[in-house]
Computed example of a mutant assay.
Amino acid sequence: MSFAPDTEVALRSVVNLINTAEATDVDQLLTPSDLDEFLAREEFTGSRTHTEGELRAVRQLRSRLRAIWISGEDDAVRAVNDILRAARALPQLVKHDRWDYHLHATTPEAPLEERMAVEAAMALVDVIRSGELDRLRVCAAPDCGAVVLDLSRNRSKRYCDTGNCGNREHVRAYRQRRSSAG
């Protein structure tokens, strides 16, 4: 499945945001400075307050997006619509920095968490409209809660990109087969 480039970028950012809490035992968004680093890696633009309140709002958004990620279609639709309605989202084509035309549905001056929420919601709209919610998963490793975005053609991605879950599980399965055979 191939989504529009801005949709894929937004979905990957959602994965990366959710996984700041799910990929390790340590929350990776503890300070406004941590948030600054995350947003720089994600190339997220627009106004910022650099406050504890902004950090708190993004952390709450992270939990909300994880709930959408693992929910069923009806709940996902309801949550996405709530985000878009609350922000009074008005989609428009924009071109800035190194990015070609893509959709924004808020102003650059809107609060950070609102811009992040609406960008995620707009990407999730494409996923839902395409009937592709099953591409949003949780890592199949039993000891991992990270989320996975499966953009593979054959829908085969099972493990996250945050660590070595896939390798670890393949080695475990190999060792189990060897011990069963011997």
Rank of each mutant, 00 (worst) to 15 (best):
V14R: 06
N16Y: 04
I18A: 13
I18F: 12
N19M: 05
N19A: 07
T24C: 03
V26G: 01
L29E: 10
L29M: 08
P32A: 06
S33G: 07
D34S: 10
D34V: 00
D36S: 06
L39Y: 06
L39W: 10
L39P: 08
A40D: 14
A40L: 15
R41V: 12
E42K: 02
F44I: 13
T45C: 06
T45Q: 07
S47Q: 13
T51H: 01
T51L: 09
G53R: 09
L55V: 07
R56Q: 09
R56H: 08
A57Q: 13
R59D: 03
Q60Y: 06
Q60R: 13
L61N: 05
R62Y: 13
S63K: 09
S63N: 08
L65M: 05
L65R: 03
L65Q: 00
R66W: 12
A67E: 13
I68K: 05
G72Y: 06
D74G: 03
D74Q: 13
D75I: 05
D75V: 12
V77C: 05
R78C: 07
A79C: 09
A79L: 05
A79M: 03
D82Y: 03
L90P: 00
L90N: 14
L90G: 00
L90D: 15
Q92R: 15
L93E: 10
L93K: 08
L93I: 14
V94I: 15
V94R: 10
H96W: 07
D97N: 13
D100E: 15
H102W: 12
H102S: 10
A105K: 00
P108W: 02
L112K: 10
L112R: 03
R115Y: 03
R115M: 10
V118D: 02
V118I: 04
V118G: 11
A121V: 03
A123Q: 08
E132W: 01
V138G: 03
V138L: 09
A141D: 11
G145A: 15
G145S: 14
G145Q: 14
A146N: 09
S156K: 10
Y159D: 05
Y159N: 05
C160W: 04
R168C: 09
A173W: 00
A173G: 09
A173Q: 08
Y174D: 01
Y174T: 08
Q176H: 11
R178I: 07
R178P: 03
S179M: 08
S179K: 11
S180T: 12
G182N: 08
